[in-house]
Design a protein around this nucleic acid. Structure first.
Lengths: 132, 132
DNA sequence: ACGATTATATCGCATTATACGATATAACGA
DNA sequence: TCGTTATATCGTATAATGCGATATAATCGT
């Protein structure tokens, strides 16, 4: 069962992911992903998740800010802390690099009945829920 | 509906993907992926898919062969052609970099009933099928 | 037969990505 | 005040990425 899900999962991503011409590095995508999924994330958290030193994480973030994909917010309570957030542009880049292509996904879904579409949505919601 | 599926899809991958300490580059993963999903793939095909020049693709493949993740097979009919295949080691590296972690996925599924598990498997098979 | 094409490979070179140690600054905590 | 925490910057090193130029061998078209 695990293997079937994994084969389908990778097949779906392989077939439906957007064609990306964007020049974006692997670590940049991982950082945008972290910022998107985690609330109140800081530089040191990114270093921890990515298993890199804090200064390297700081350099990465600097680049992402200057690219216009992230912005910083100083904490009110503790002025040392810097919370990171995605810009609209950053969200758009992240989507192109982690989500399924909307048009390709729509084309795939159109081959199914309404009942089948709903089954797929429910299944994704279910697995997403128990993954947390 | 598209947005719900995409949010769930990225959540599932974010929560369940393996923690990877392997030192492997982005392009290397993409090439292993291509070789895995496509039959009789050649250097020039990889260049085409990855939108890079054939000589760069050749260099990448050389590195992957020397890492023991790919091996080459000369075509019988046309001796110019070199088909690429994954080694066992290459397949293992690819899985760690694209699939969901077996243990994490199992833990998530264990929170569900047998009926719900089957619904998820059917939904993934369904979407995988219409994605081709 | 032979020039054109195809597929791969290699070399030289340039740029970007990735990372860390050392060091600095500012803010917080006891 | 002194130690700790969070971020930032500089210098430096190595790996990753990529392309043009060039080479070799096989195949194709006429």
């Amino acid at each position: 069962m695990i293997n079937v899900i994994n084969r389908c999962f990778t097949d779906i991503y392989f077939q439906l992911h957007p064609v990306q011409n964007d020049a974006i590095s692997h670590q940049s995508v991982r950082i945008l992903q972290l910022v998107h999924k985690k609330k109140y994330i800081m530089i040191r958290d990114i270093a921890e998740y990515l298993l890199i030193s804090h200064n390297t994480a700081s350099e990465h973030v600097k680049k992402l800010v200057s690219s216009g994909w992230l912005y910083k917010e100083r904490s009110e309570e503790d002025q040392r802390k810097v919370y990171l957030h995605l810009t609209q542009s950053g969200l758009s880049v992240l989507k192109k690099n982690t989500e399924l292509d909307e048009e390709k996904l729509q084309n795939a879904l159109n081959k199914l009945s309404d009942e089948e579409k709903m089954q797929i949505v429910r299944a994704f919601q279910l697995l997403s829920e128990v993954s947390k």
